[in-house]
Amino acid sequence: MLLIRCPWCGMDRPEIEFRHAGAAHITRPGPPDRVSDEEWAAFLYLRDNPKGRVAERWRHVHGCGRFFNAVRDTVTDVFVVTYKAGEPRPPETGPGESQPTEARP
């Protein structure tokens, strides 16, 4: 079970208090009549699935109830940083490949 730091509560709390909420920093395009079909399809469905660091949304659903963003390494599961919704992704957190543990086939 992972420990996740809620940036609102300022505490490390167990994973079961949280719910994953998809990729972070996806902007809802608008207004509707100025958005192309391709743009909207990309907003709805196209997501990166990188090996390494991803920025994703989490909600402290069984805690303060608030949404926040996290940079997590998909190889190591390490939470590099968590930050409040609306704040930009800290520049030092990538994007980029992580240093995975030695590739074992």
Partner: peptide
């Protein structure tokens, strides 16, 4: 939960 999402982030 969905409304909370829009209220907090959108």
């Amino acid at each position: 939960g969905m409304f909370e999402d829009y209220l907090q982030t959108e």
